[in-house]
Amino acid sequence: MPPDIDQDQRREDVARTAAKLVAERGMGAITFRNLAAEMGCSTTAISHYFTNRDEILAETYRYVAARAGQGRKPPPGADARARLQSIERILPLDAGTWDNWVIWLCFWTEALFNPALARQQKEYSRGSRRMIEDLLESVGCPEPLAASLSQKVMTTLYGIAVQAAFDRESWTPAAQRAALHDVLQPVFDLIPEAATP
């Protein structure tokens, strides 16, 4: 790592590398030695910014959540249909979103035994639900329906991703979109131009 990169950038570099290792080899791949080898530096260069593995895990989880959040925003000026369909970007439809889900599934298992990661997961999950609820309201979904439907959407997204992790042949992008659309149909029905996605 070049000496002129600031502390935040170095921490992000480690988190990005850790995310790559998890996506390729699972949580066990996150070690100071593996990270140093992947980044072409010494373990000391990493321990200067992270005192232990748990700190790396927390930073990696933050990095992946932020990266995923950037990818799911509707384009500026999007109509109601396009905004609603932006929820699809959460699904494991391509290489980038697939990696995110592999990483999340690995972290969820780790979070069962790590209270700090469990708190992060609860925060991220609630944030995603709020984002979906706000999006549903923005396309004309009444508040009570948006509140209940956002939870159904979250449950559907999680269910699709878990099944796709073990059966990608059945859970193609088209199948994933169809399953999500079934849950969102009440909202599509409220949007004349989106009645037939």
Rank of each mutant, 00 (worst) to 15 (best):
F50T: 06
L57R: 07
E55S: 09
N52M: 05
D94G: 10
P92A: 07
M39C: 06
L105N: 14
V14D: 00
E59V: 08
A116N: 04
R126F: 14
T17S: 13
T43Y: 06
V14G: 00
W104D: 12
T51L: 04
S42C: 01
T31Q: 11
T109W: 04
H48N: 10
A65Q: 14
P142L: 08
L117R: 02
D79A: 01
G40W: 07
R62K: 10
K73R: 15
T17P: 03
T43A: 03
L117I: 09
R53P: 04
E143H: 08
E24V: 10
P74A: 00
S42E: 01
I90D: 13
Y63V: 06
K122L: 15
L112P: 03
E123P: 08
M131G: 12
N34H: 05
M131W: 15
V102M: 10
I132L: 12
Q85Y: 09
D94L: 11
G127E: 04
Q9S: 11
G71Y: 07
G40M: 11
A29H: 04
E123W: 09
R129T: 10
R25H: 15
I103K: 07
I103M: 10
L35Y: 01
P74S: 00
P76D: 02
Q9C: 05
T109R: 15
E12A: 10
M27S: 07
E143F: 03
R16K: 12
A118F: 04
R130E: 11
E143Q: 07
L136Q: 01
R53I: 07
A118G: 08
V14E: 03
W98D: 14
A19R: 14
A65D: 15
L91S: 09
Y61F: 11
G127K: 01
W101Q: 05
Q85W: 09
F107W: 06
L117M: 12
L93C: 05
R10E: 08
L21G: 05
S125E: 08
A66D: 11
A118R: 03
D54F: 02
S86H: 06
R119F: 08
R11L: 06
Y124E: 11
G26T: 12
A58Y: 03
R10A: 10
L93Y: 02
T109L: 10
L35P: 03
A15E: 00
P75L: 12
S128Q: 13
A36M: 02
A37V: 09
F107T: 08
T51K: 04
E55I: 05
E123N: 07
G28V: 03
T44Y: 10
H48S: 11
E59H: 14
S138H: 00
P142R: 10
T109E: 14
A80T: 03
W101S: 00
A58F: 06
D79G: 00
A19S: 12
Q70D: 14
A68E: 13
V14W: 01
S125G: 09
P75C: 07
L21T: 02
S128L: 15
F32L: 09
G140T: 06
I46N: 00
A18R: 10
T31R: 08
P75D: 09
R62Y: 02
R33A: 01
R11H: 00
A95I: 12
R83L: 07
Y124D: 12
E143R: 14
R83K: 15
P76L: 09
F107S: 05
C41G: 09
R129G: 10
T17A: 12
L112S: 06
M131P: 06
W98R: 13
R25V: 05
R33V: 13
Q121L: 12
G140V: 05
I90M: 15
R53S: 03
